[in-house]
Design a binder for these strands. Structure first.
Length: 508
RNA sequence: GGCCCCGUCGUCUAGUGGUCUAGGACAUCGCCCUUUCACGGCGGUAACACGGGUUCAAAUCCCGUCGGGGUCACCA
């Protein structure tokens, strides 16, 4: 029976790299009819937090990754994941901080057999042999004893180090395949040595290459701080207006002395800065679909062959194999992710896209769209913006003019010049002629408006462009909008007429 | 720096000695469609890091160089 696990340390948000590791581990277990475990390596007392634990569980769930053993995710946030009652599985508890007694037994055993020794309050394991093992991705790996040092397995605070805990837990939880990031490749000899000393079977190891930024640097949470710092460089920040609790950190932050997330977010907010997406939560906020993130991230270092690129988690589970995992690091290409997201959005049933969009706005804490339009209008907007959206944030951005105030809409000077003023203000003339007709248009819906516009164009010897463009500028302020009849239908008769009046008044 | 690992279009990759005049996707460029935008359709540009071998034959095997990454913590 195949058993895999994802074992994050709860010290922050779930990173895309971690998401990929989790996804591969999950897919491998599911594809082999095995079990998948989520376990938390919280042996770093200072940095671990319950909030981080909850967020990681939330993000795994959002991605569509489910687990057979581990803490149960509670969306309400009321249940304490550390409570054994809120954990599922026969090999728990699933927090290393709750397994201290177990680790101590093994440390004692190693001590008794002379394979480890005390070093102050800590305990070190003796590394005195050459180590060789087979990695499913990288092939045979061997390290000479001379290149290995005795390492700490029990810290002075009584907690085991990651090395000891990971080996003991994987053995006790009957893990057969360890799929993890490449950064652990050079730790593996230590783990193998420990397994041999303790008489544990060696799991199959598979290390995945890293995910890098487009410039080749490592993709890390620090990139957000770096971006904020760079943007703040030659700007004056309203430090006095910053929340009191972060005010003192700001100077140090700008001085590269800390990478405070709170300061980073504050700078992004006051500078209206877009931070790079690094964590799974960032991608959710930016309006990416979970299945697309999974799809894209799986493609970084793995592919099913045969030129298939678009697939869901079910397909991944059926086809994923360690043989096809690449060895080279991959750069994260947001353009391709965006293209995949746009494609997935375009292929969604309209109602589903509408629902996703509305929920997305609600989750992000509201939107002028939610305040201004009723459900039916929101759904009409969704239908119109679905083919134009690459993310769930796009409708609000592209359709910002819909929620503008009728009396303060801004006009793009170039659009006014080109569409309204050219040819002795032909565009303004069109608006004037159309005003009456539109006022009498009945009913006020897309097809009727379209028919009206078409016959108007024909009667007056104009092309559709001659009539649609002036209207577009009048109601949106620019030359870009969804098809004009849809735009007007959604906007409503009153707003349409008001905007036409004002446009003639202001630009005529 | 020591040790380990990696190196095909700008990016992700297919490719496991001959089927490679190197395929796909994203990006990019051009054309078409068109009431704008987006979509869509068609077409183009673009890669085997470099240098030596091995072989009848190398992107595919070997060596070296260069470039990149990881790791050297009582963090994971």
């Amino acid at each position: 029976m195949v058993v895999t696990r994802f074992a994050p340390s709860p010290t922050g948000e779930l990173h895309v790299g971690g998401a990929r590791t989790a996804l591969f581990s999950w897919a491998f277990a599911r594809g082999h009819g095995g079990r998948f475990i989520v376990r938390f390596e919280d042996t770093d007392q200072a940095r671990s937090s319950t909030q981080s634990t909850r967020n990681i569980l939330r993000d795994l769930t959002w991605l569509g990754i489910d687990w057979d053993e581990g803490p149960i995710y509670d969306p309400t946030g009321e249940k304490d994941p550390y409570d054994p009652a809120n954990q599922r599985g026969e090999h728990g508890p699933y927090f290393q901080s709750q397994r201290l007694d177990i680790y101590r037994q093994y440390v004692q055993q190693l001590l008794d057999r002379g394979l480890a020794y005390r070093d102050g309050e800590a305990v070190r394991f003796r590394m005195d042999r050459d180590i060789a093992f087979e990695d499913q991705v990288f092939g045979p790996i061997s390290v000479a004893a001379a290149d290995l040092e005795d390492f700490v397995i029990l810290k002075a605070d009584g907690f085991p180090t990651f090395h000891l805990a990971v080996v003991v837990d994987d053995a006790l939880m009957k893990v057969t395949h360890v799929i993890r990031g490449q950064e652990h490749l050079s730790n593996t000899p230590k783990h193998v040595a420990l397994q041999d000393a303790l008489g544990f079977p060696r799991p199959v190891y598979a290390h995945t290459p890293s995910i890098m930024n487009p410039d080749g640097s490592k993709m890390s949470k620090r990139d957000k701080a770096r971006t904020a710092r760079a943007a703040a460089k030659d700007k004056t920040l309203p430090i006095d207006a910053a929340p009191p609790e972060i005010r003192e950190e700001i100077a140090d932050f700008l001085d590269k002395k800390n990478d405070s997330m709170a300061v980073t977010q504050w700078i992004a907010k006051v500078l209206d800065l877009k931070l790079p997406e690094i964590d799974v939560a960032d991608f959710r906020e930016s309006g990416y679909l979970p299945q697309v993130l999974c799809n894209y991230v799986a493609l970084l270092g793995w592919n099913p062959g045969n030129n298939i690129e678009k697939f869901d988690n079910t397909f991944l589970a059926q086809h994923f194999g360690l043989e096809r995992v690449g060895k080279a690091n991959a750069r994260f290409d947001r353009d391709k992710l965006l293209a995949f997201n746009a494609d997935a959005i375009a292929n969604l049933p309209v109602e589903e896209f509408a629902t996703l969009w509305i929920e997305h706005m609600k989750r992000r804490g509201g939107s002028p769209f939610l305040a201004k339009f009723d459900e039916a209008t929101l759904r009409a907007l969704a239908a119109v913006y679905q083919p134009r959206s690459r993310t769930l944030n796009d409708p609000e951005v592209l359709g910002a003019f819909f929620v503008a105030d009728d009396e303060s809409l801004a006009y793009d000077p170039k659009a006014v010049q080109k569409v309204l003023h050219k040819n002795e203000k032909a565009g303004i003339a069109v608006l004037g002629e159309l005003r009456e007709r539109l006022a009498g248009c009945e009913p006020w819906d897309g097809p009727t408006i379209h028919a009206l516009l078409e016959s108007f164009a024909k009667e007056t010897g104009r092309g559709m462009g001659d009539v649609a463009q002036p209207l577009r500028v009048a109601v949106s302020g620019s030359t870009v909008s969804p098809p004009i009849q849809d735009t007007l239908a959604i906007l409503g008769r009153n707003a349409t007429l008001a905007r036409i009046e004002r446009c003639i008044r202001v630009n005529g």
